[in-house]
């Protein structure tokens, strides 16, 4: 049994590992070391990049026509036979009508239509965008601040992707304020309640991003500034928190729309526009069976939102193969 491979020994084998040229037992031992060694990990990722560039030496060799067409036809047939996102089917499917709820404070189902009543126009969660990136709070602004924090629990646009850190700081700050206000007895009950609500909302936000049952879907894009996003799905409470970074501003009259994609439907989780720095956070509550999420996508839509996506996604993250 090889164990505890020395750093030097492992490092010398990283080039061969990147070329996939290690024997199985040595490969396992080196990988075990790499798992615990940051410098070897960095080195390996650089060497893997180098190895990937070796593919540049290959020149195209056309396949024989019959072979090319055969493979293409098989691939498309395989893909077509897979369950996959499809346009929404007609009315009967409403039996499984998604129930998208505003997270806070109302908990009103937006789409809780009984089956036999006329179907309402499609509902799109259109949350308000509230700046979260506040400066230090002056005492006299405390009440107002505490009030918008409850709203911020629905959708917040943040000044940086480090929404979580901001949120932690703000929660801690509010805790201090709450203590000070209670001890000195100078704030009225409403203010204290608002502060408590703000703290609770923030704690929930933090839990939704870091809890033990949070599934994370990373979304990628091809935009020049390399927009990216993560969806945090807290499966214990069906809370969805979407954090996007580097999104270009949509054109006038347009907004981004967030979609939860399953095999049979695309569920709107709201429209949003990023702040000046290209960042946005969107939150929604929606109960989805664990295996049902196929992808999370963002499309460019009219500002009022669309019932179904009408453009190619600017961001998408799939759960396939996970």
């Amino acid at each position: 049994m090889m164990h505890g491979l020395a750093h030097d020994e492992a490092r010398d084998a990283l080039g061969a590992l990147a070329l996939d040229a290690l024997d199985a037992s040595e490969r396992a031992a080196v990988l075990a070391h790499v798992a615990d060694c940051g410098s070897c990990r960095d080195e390996l990722s650089a060497l893997r990049e180098t190895a990937a560039k070796l593919t540049y030496v290959v020149e195209p060799v056309p396949m024989p026509d019959d072979q090319r067409d055969r493979v293409r036809a098989r691939l498309l047939a395989r893909a077509a036979s897979e369950p996959k996102p499809k346009p929404i089917p007609a009315a009967p499917a409403q039996a499984h009508a998604p129930q998208l709820r505003i997270l806070e404070p109302s908990h009103v189902p937006l789409n809780a239509t009984p089956r036999d009543t006329p179907v309402p126009p499609p509902v799109v969660l259109r949350p308000t965008v509230v700046p979260l990136n506040a400066a230090l709070v002056a005492a006299q602004r405390m009440e107002a601040r505490a009030r918008w924090m409850a709203a911020a629990a629905i959708v917040v646009a943040v000044g940086s992707v480090w929404a979580l850190i901001n949120t932690r700081e703000e929660r801690d700050e509010m805790r201090v304020q709450l203590q000070v206000a209670s001890v000195e007895g100078r704030a009225d009950g409403r203010v204290l309640d608002s502060l408590r609500a703000g703290i609770t909302a923030r704690e929930r936000f933090i839990a939704n991003l870091t809890g033990p049952q949070v599934a994370v879907v990373t979304l990628a894009s091809g935009t020049p500034r390399a927009a990216s996003a993560r969806m945090f799905w807290d499966q214990s409470v069906n809370a969805w928190t979407f954090v996007a970074h580097n999104l270009p501003q949509p054109r006038n009259g347009r907004a981004y729309q967030l979609w939860l994609v399953t095999a049979s439907t695309k569920i709107s989780a709201g429209t949003f526009t990023p702040d000046g720095a290209g960042d946005a956070v969107v939150r929604a509550n929606y109960a989805l069976p664990k295996g049902d999420l196929a992808a999370v996508a963002v499309t460019d839509e009219p500002a009022r939102g669309s019932p179904q996506p009408t453009t190619v996604p600017v961001l998408v993250g799939s759960t396939k193969g996970r």
Binding site: P87, I88, I267, T310
Partner: peptide
């Protein structure tokens, strides 16, 4: 969510 347009262009 939009049963009225089953052929809505996707």
């Amino acid at each position: 969510m939009n049963p009225l347009s089953p052929d809505s262009p996707y």
